[in-house]
Design a protein around this nucleic acid. Structure first.
Lengths: 223, 223
DNA sequence: CTGGTCTGATCCAATGGTGAGCCAATACTA
DNA sequence: TAGTATTGGCTCACCATTGGATCAGACCAG
């Protein structure tokens, strides 16, 4: 049995909260009690509760206790937690909006060294012999294109999508849809995007990226 | 059976990773345990894990363990906090990508009651007599269009943008660029978007929204 | 014999939990 | 109103776990 660390405690607490366990009054037990209950030191519980506090799940008051934050649907934390339920179909739709644009920006803005980074990611992905390595460098290829786009917000949105895509349901789905043949197709399509970037052809990069994402969508969603 | 060398261990590990074996928490067992499990020296495991680290499959931290690189290197929270520094120019660029698409989706998908909600927001905004009220219902107008889009992820991205736009630097900027004349222009432009939605004309809605956002950008950034 | 690789062992340094103690804000009670 | 108990905020020394690094020796193929 793995030892409980602060992260574990935090996710246990989250579970209890979402199961509505101390919904009444919104008050959690004191840290000292939780420490006994989980069989860890109070310091550890404190760190765990600290995480919940950081993302706004919980509010603490000295002498009073720790309380569930009155859920504000428009808080960042709420938005992020709703995003975790994003469906692959919705995500692919948005990728098809954003990535062609990112590729187009990249064709205009990328510096030589940024472009080299993209090329390198493409090369490693093509040479990869196993699925996880390919997966990783495929994602990196896309990410590095966003990095060329000169729009920090766009970059961060892509980070968000990347994180969401690395969660459990996606992992299964990617594994299921992977095949050697498809990998080869992706490499070819990436190459087309790359060619357009190197030609400094925004229109072409956008088109090539869109075509690629359509392929990915088809494979992923089995349409 | 041939003796196991570092390369063999590496590919065994890759298999386990891709089979999702330690997907939860993304943490691999400590090197010492792996060494026992595979029946080789820890040095050998170290080299093997070193390969995985080189190609980015895995990240190692002294005192913590070895983690699958796919499990967010940058956490959601970090992404969100970086987003708080988003510049108005970057944001407007992304709005011009997403909102026309949202309007287009809305033209195809909106139900009658959703459409009514958009109409109502538009009406109140037009009748508003002070800047904060107008501001609020203007935002609501845009938001309700996203709500019609039938893409939850898109909706949440818009929530994110909305929160960011309500922060200090934006508030100043919006106040500065506000004028009675501009308000009237916005109402006219909103009306055009609305007309297209009611005609169920995705193409037209997209165009009208883009035109509107170009106006907003010009006013906001003073270009 | 030589070069490459695994073994087993040892030490280092970073991370993070433990347990204990004290403070200050709040709530409860006499 | 005053005193006491509860509760979160904070710090400290200590220690277990874990990856980082190195070394001498064994084994094997060429």
């Amino acid at each position: 049995m793995p030892k409980l660390v602060a992260d574990d405690i935090a996710s246990l607490l989250r579970k209890r909260i979402s199961s509505g366990e101390w919904q009444d009054a919104g008050r959690m037990p004191p840290e000292r009690d939780l420490a006994v209950e989980f069989g860890v030191a109070r310091n550890t519980v404190r760190r765990a509760v600290g995480f919940l506090e950081e993302d706004g799940t919980v509010v603490r008051h000295v002498g009073r206790g720790t309380f569930l934050a009155t859920s504000n649907p428009s808080s960042m934390a709420a938005v992020v937690s709703r995003m975790e339920g994003t469906s692959p179909a919705d995500m692919m739709e948005i990728r098809q909006l954003l990535e062609p644009a990112a590729a187009s920006f990249a064709a205009t803005n990328a510096s030589a060294s940024e472009l080299n980074a993209v090329i390198e990611a493409h090369r490693i992905a093509c040479e990869a012999s196993d699925m996880p390595t390919f997966e990783h460098w495929d994602a990196e290829f896309h990410h590095r294109i966003f990095a060329c786009s000169r729009n920090d917000f766009l970059k961060e949105i892509h980070n968000l999508m990347r994180i969401l895509r690395n969660q459990a349901p996606w992992f299964e789905m990617k594994k299921r849809s992977f095949s050697e043949e498809r990998r080869a197709i992706y490499c070819t399509e990436h190459q087309l995007v790359l060619d357009a970037l190197m030609r400094r052809d925004p229109e072409g990069a956008s088109r090539a990226m869109l075509a690629h994402l359509r392929t990915v969508e088809r494979n992923l969603l089995g349409r």
